[in-house]
Design a protein around this nucleic acid. Structure first.
Lengths: 123, 123
DNA sequence: CTATATGTAATTAACACAATTACAGTTAAT
DNA sequence: ATTAACTGTAATTGTGTTAATTACATATAG
């Protein structure tokens, strides 16, 4: 996303992939999520590619996080509890609220950082 | 750790393993880290096991997190940068500070929760 | 029509971590 | 002393998540 902000125009998945040293298909899959979140627009065909749909100052890292994130920052034990153990039976609920608080803390931090701020650090 | 706080005495790795539905060896490995952090003491031999070394009110989730954590909340791309790309060359440093901020946010949250608070929710 | 993109499924590879097995060392009870 | 029951720890295998790769249908510019 910083590369897209930097280029200010269309970039294809092959170039984006090179900049993060991965495969173009990985990039295209991420772009689908970013497009769903209305952060980018993509174009097929010759001279296709992707570009930002908003100004860098209008895109926070939280926007990007929500668009591409898969798993929570703190995972909880999803196995079934041991029913003879009171602690075991309560822990899932207890840890869920702990994990939830951690998630909110991270979200608050990411909400305060914009793509523009990242871009400024490049130049 | 909540189970240890609940029992107020020695628990063996087999029982602890049952309460989280895993293998005793996994528990013993975690206990090594917790022991290194002086949060528990362990005893070998017959009637051995583990017990807390501090009161539940004196143990925060951050203490436990530091004792057992392996990987950071937000991982950064460790691949080598594409040297023809200014963005690629700067991103590792930029994202490191973002990840660092997120880590601090989570640590702050965990610092505010004690084992005693978790214990109270069980009873 | 052709070259060059994306969209997307299917398959394989890589990796982290859990699970398991095995056994040496330790301790309590008899 | 011997035995039973535990921890400490290494080594190996299993499992689940995600990346990498391949393949191809579809789209678009020239």
């Amino acid at each position: 996303m910083t590369a897209l902000a930097f280029s200010e125009g269309l970039m294809d998945s092959r170039t984006l992939a090179a900049s993060v040293n991965t495969n173009p298909v990985v990039i295209r899959r991420l772009l689908l999520g970013l497009r769903r979140a209305k952060l980018v627009e993509t174009y097929a065909g010759k001279h296709g590619g992707a570009r930002l749909r908003k100004k860098p100052r209008e895109i926070s890292l939280l926007d990007i996080y929500d668009a591409v994130q898969r798993r929570p920052v703190i995972a909880i034990n999803e196995r079934k509890a041991w029913k003879h153990c009171a602690v075991s039976c309560h822990m899932k609920g207890i840890m869920s609220s702990v994990a939830d608080g951690a998630e909110q803390a991270v979200r608050k931090h990411l909400r305060g950082i914009t793509l523009k701020q990242l871009l400024r650090q490049v130049c």
